[in-house]
Design a protein around this nucleic acid. Structure first.
Lengths: 179, 179
DNA sequence: GACGCCATGTAACATGTTACATGATTTA
DNA sequence: TAAATCATGTAACATGTTACATGGCGTC
């Protein structure tokens, strides 16, 4: 999965500038690209060359060189093709679990600290995510189906956060029982 | 999280060759690097220069240039430092959920197909993972604590697979109810 | 006037993937 | 004898991150 298809998907929702895309991507909990993401600009140049997006320069709108990108029919076709390809299996990128795998090198105290701080981080992130979710639900009236997709996507992520938190409780209990 | 620390962790478990590391990393369900991973070789050169690993050439063992890498005291220190750093939050890299987010562009039929094929893929992967887990449990007698870490790590991943499968059932129901 | 946000872009660097090159040993 | 596995490495390419450069607009 590349950033190109994500940009096509966002542009299909509505035409917007590189800056808007950058913000949308960096604040989305589903899309993992750096907050300071300048890749969108190079990606947009690439997509332009491919004929998947077209740019129109907006005069007299604050910034002189501001461009609004729109998805082209070829771009929409490419997006639909990608949307119906069987996705690769999810990948859980979890530094903590790898640290945990090697945790025999740590003292019991360090391991407790690691688990505690990870749990705290998770709880905080879950609150932030739920807040984002709440704001999504209160968004101006969208189509019912579109809302359903967003709501379900959020609950998917929230489920994984809760799975992780439940696991920590279970892991603590098991480790205590063999100590 | 870089591949360097993963290599240090694996070398701390036991000294091994680049090829062994490559295999360990590409077959581990926790470490996401390409199966055809040649990064290990460049990473080992890097780690050597840093003084974190040392190589000894094994003569008369099949391949002439075969090297066994061992973690150095400096490497172990670096590993321990990394192991006790607060991990970045997990990142769920899930192409499916992004496709789902943009799924209004698809027909109902295409959406069903997408969910069906993703579910099938998940079920297959879960079976493979459980098989891998079973083999881990039957591994030659390791220390009890080490086994506990491995067992818990596996159950962590398995929990996420099941969370994903449960979510699909829930999503199908909700989408059917608003159709 | 300083700060933050809007807005686009380049350059350098780090990381990750694919293809290629070489050649030994083991297994079918 | 063909294929798979062991074993190391290089080169080209793709992707992703950080820092830098530029400058307008709004607001405190």
């Amino acid at each position: 999965m590349s950033i190109h298809h994500v940009i096509l998907g966002l542009l299909h929702q509505c035409p917007q500038s590189g800056y808007d895309l950058k913000k949308a991507i960096s604040t989305s909990p589903f899309m993992h690209w750096s907050g300071n993401n300048n890749q969108v600009y190079t990606s947009l140049i690439h997509l332009s060359r491919e004929g998947f997006v077209s740019a129109s320069i907006i005069e007299g709108s604050g910034y002189p060189g501001k461009k609004i990108y729109t998805i082209t029919p070829a771009g929409l076709e490419e997006l639909k093709k990608w949307l119906s390809t069987t996705p690769a299996l999810f990948e859980m990128h979890n530094q903590f679990i790898i640290q945990f795998l090697f945790a025999e090198s740590l003292s019991t105290q360090q391991r407790y600290n690691l688990m505690d701080s990870y749990e705290e981080e998770l709880k905080q992130a879950l609150i932030t995510l739920q807040e984002l979710f709440r704001r999504e639900l209160n968004a101006p009236n969208e189509a019912l189906s579109k809302m359903a997709f967003r709501r379900l996507s959020f609950s998917n992520l929230i489920n994984h956060y809760q799975t992780e938190l439940n696991w920590i409780a279970q892991a603590r209990q098991e480790l205590d029982s063999i100590a």
